[in-house]
């Protein structure tokens, strides 16, 4: 069984940070890069499936520049067999739909039985890439999976989703399929030092949309949005600073409450 796990190198903010002057994003000096938390769970789910079925291959795929190699090496150390990184400078700032379009080209080439994505990324929090990818791949998909049982003989997965009010939705889905995996579904393993060293020797292929036969216009057309500006929210109006002794302050608060209640 072949499983593709699309992952993302996310950026975590320091306690204090500054934005770039042009508003295009956060000053990278204040960012710490790491593998997206959700992807640790989807990778673990893939590794467990590979181990349960006794054979197969886990391929991690990302769209990102060479900073993302560290995340891929981390996945390889934990047990992924191969990694594919797709990049082209035109992808800088790509939105989830464009990223999904590029990922689709990579995943199609692999022809996997399962695609396991994280539900969302911790930095952008769109929750869109996984399901959009299913759309491009024209695969059945289930989002926000909390439990996954795979039936090898039937090539089908029984999955549970947690809904509002504590309801659990149980679905059965035939492969090939795409699932987005929720945190807490398993306990992600860590890589020991030997695995980290050995991961340096595992295949990490770098490709580009063009090499995957993807037209730049097609990627551009896929994009649904672009970031215009990242900024701190403007301070709202309507706050009234009340000065004076405690009794004066209390009297003014009573006055305001009465005004609002009668208004």
């Amino acid at each position: 069984m072949k499983i593709v796990v699309p992952v993302k190198q996310v950026a975590a903010l320091d306690d204090e940070f500054e934005l770039l002057d042009d508003g295009s994003g956060v000053d990278p000096d204040f960012l710490e890069l790491d593998l997206n938390e959700w992807d640790a769970f989807s990778l673990e789910a893939a590794l467990q499936l590979r181990e349960a079925t006794g054979d197969g291959e886990v391929v991690v795929v990302t769209v990102g520049d060479d900073d993302a190699d560290e995340a891929l090496r981390g996945c390889l150390a934990r047990g992924a067999d191969r990694a594919l990184r797709i990049w082209d400078e035109s992808l800088d700032g790509a939105d989830p739909l464009a990223v999904a379009r590029v990922l689709a080209a990579g995943v199609e080439r692999e022809r996997p039985d399962l695609v396991l994505c994280g539900v969302q990324s911790s930095d952008a929090v769109n929750g869109a890439t996984g399901v959009a990818l299913a759309g491009y791949l024209q695969m059945p998909h289930v989002a926000v999976v909390k439990q996954l049982d795979f039936d090898v003989a039937q090539s089908a997965a029984t999955v549970k989703r947690e809904l509002e009010g504590g309801l659990v939705e149980v679905l059965r889905v035939r492969t090939p399929a795409l699932l987005t995996i929720q945190t807490g579904i398993n306990e992600p393993r860590y890589a020991n030092l030997r695995a980290i060293k050995q991961a340096r020797e595992k295949p990490l292929e770098v490709s580009s949309p063009g090499e995957l036969g993807l037209d730049a216009d097609l990627v551009a057309a896929a994009a649904g949005s672009r970031r215009r500006e990242l900024k701190h929210p403007e301070r709202g109006e309507g706050a009234e600073m009340i000065d004076g002794s405690p009794s004066e302050v209390a009297a003014r608060i009573v006055e305001i409450v009465r005004e609002r209640m009668s208004g």
Partner: peptide
Amino acid sequence: SRLSAAEVLEYG
């Protein structure tokens, strides 16, 4: 993570 002697030996 509780490590056995074997796991320590193979830890790298």
